[in-house]
Amino acid sequence: MTYLTLSLTLIFVLIPIILSRTLKLGLEKDTLIATVRSIIQLLAVGYVLQYVFEADNIIFILLMVLLMIGAATQNARRKGDSIRGITWKLFVTFVFIEVLTQSILLGFNIVPPTPQYIIPISGMVIGNSMVLGILFLNRFTAEVESRQDETELILTLGGTPRQAIHTQLITSIKSSTIPTIESQKTIGLVQLPGMMSGQIIAGADPVQAVQFQLLILFLLLTTAVVTSIMLGFLSYPTLFNKRMQFLKLKS
């Protein structure tokens, strides 16, 4: 695609701006900011990736992955700041997920150990893990808040903190992972996944595109379940002290 053709795609930005102005929706400023930011961010990433791919240096790959984990942690921590030490819990979770998935992919030679594969797959894994983390934390803090009586009841009857928080933990893990599992059931029927569509448009063999998409889907399944479980088991102990007393969430 030439830059001239690319600039023609701005028609798709003009349509919502004109509609917003005509109907006085007040979305013009946000639409413009979003457009400018996406152009700058994506072009910057494109040039950085080009450089990293050409350099083919492990240090650059590690720095890119670390940057992704840092940004994901920064973004997700706002949703869980009522849980003590949430920043390092998220960071450890994202690092673990990245190490786990890349070890399987590279260890079994499923993908070649080149930046062209490692970086985009890491982006999808960490991005998905971040969304799952946010979903989990949202639900978990709401469950803990609304079921304090139940937690207290189990403690008074001689239950452990793990038993006192069990229902809230399981409910939150399930509810945050269900969307990932459900969306896989209809994939290909309702919509073609972005990565697969991109490959097909770029001229790849559709069957090979599907194979890669399946790899990503299965990877994201592990990511979803491991993120929720790991965050859950790292988070719940901070709700109790050594005397097994329930501490309220930070306000």
């Binding site: 139940e150 009841l153 008074t156 001689g158 229902t167 005397r243 097994m244």
Partner: peptide, 22 residues
Amino acid sequence: DTYNPIELRRRVGIALQSATMI
């Protein structure tokens, strides 16, 4: 504080006003 919290809570039972049910 010399009691194990679980043992203590089994020996000192409490029926709360809220009568919470699972």
